[in-house]
């Protein structure tokens, strides 16, 4: 196993060309009111080091999509592979999942919350802390190492949660509406922050969001899902150069055109 620091410096090891693949995936939920199809016949491929944003109306199965990739759920039909592995254990090992709410433990300091990712891999507390520290510095979090989550702002909490996701040292990052709970100014700041990190160290990322602008700004490609059952209705390649200063990008006519396309696909 590579240490987390090496994994951060160099590109993640690529076991196959494809990062994540959904092939004809269907997922249904049974409840007392009957059978609900969350996803139906969904095809989606994410290449290595590609950032794919998924947007769709609420309840279109976006979170189901992430949990399938994470190995936390199994498809009813079709197949989900991550770096070539279709087995749930293989997907669990290759992905780092960032839940919608930050999921920080209130009794752990910010640093210890991030280091939890290493502790779960069997690393001792002191060693995990030592290994988490350089990343904290790189992400601009060093002043908050000892702060408890209750003392941090929403934006800082998301940063700590993202540090934990990176420290898991996985090939694929699965982000479930990471900035949904933040006010729009903080959200814009964090989008730029994340874009800068990904520009420095490309990763395979599946980002689920309901914010079209966020999807376009962060993604290499934007996938639009239909209302339930979720199906791919449009794929939009975002050919804007990186790094993208957010202010320049969102006012760019090319960006507006892409946003128009995405919104039309959503309305469709």
């Amino acid at each position: 196993m590579t240490t987390k620091l090496e994994a951060l410096r160099s590109e993640p090891p690529s076991l196959a060309r494809e990062g994540v693949a959904f092939e004809g995936v269907g997922r249904h939920y049974s409840s007392r009111r009957g059978d609900t199809a969350a996803l139906e016949d969904l095809d989606l491929r994410i290449g290595n080091d590609e950032v794919v944003s998924v947007v769709g109306p609420s309840g279109c199965g976006k979170s189901t999509l992430l949990e399938l990739a994470a190995g936390l759920q199994e498809p009813d039909s079709g197949a989900v592979r991550v770096a070539g592995s279709g087995a749930p254990a293989g997907r669990l090992e290759r992905t780092a999942y960032m839940p919608q709410r930050d999921g920080l433990l209130p009794w752990r300091s910010a640093l210890d919350n991030a280091a939890l990712a290493l502790e779960c891999g069997g690393v001792g507390r002191a060693q995990a802390r030592r290994r988490a520290r350089p990343l904290f510095a790189r992400l601009g979090l060093e002043r908050f190492e000892r702060a408890l989550p209750g003392e941090l702002s929403g934006g800082m909490r998301q940063r700590v949660a993202f540090a934990r996701t990176l420290l898991a040292g996985r090939e694929v990052l699965l982000l479930d509406e990471p900035f949904a709970s933040l006010d729009s100014i903080t959200r814009a700041g964090l989008q730029e922050w994340l874009a800068a990190i990904l520009a420095e160290e490309p990763r395979t990322v599946l980002l689920v969001t309901h914010d079209v602008e966020e999807a376009l700004y962060l993604g290499d490609r934007v996938v639009v899902l239909s209302a339930r059952p979720g199906r791919v209705v449009a794929e939009i390649a975002v050919e804007l150069r990186r790094p993208r200063p957010r202010r320049d990008v969102v006012t760019d006519p090319a960006f507006s055109a892409l946003r128009q396309r995405a919104l039309e696909a959503l309305a469709w």
Binding site: A70, L72, L92, L116, A117, E119
Partner: peptide
């Protein structure tokens, strides 16, 4: 304990007992 936290621990590779010790008991 929030189901999301349990999912997070599973995704991080924690065993059942580790989840109990590090998340469920303190919570």
């Amino acid at each position: 304990v929030e189901p999301e936290l349990i999912k997070l621990m599973r995704s991080l590779g924690a065993s059942r007992l580790m989840t109990l010790r590090k998340v469920e008991l303190p919570a």
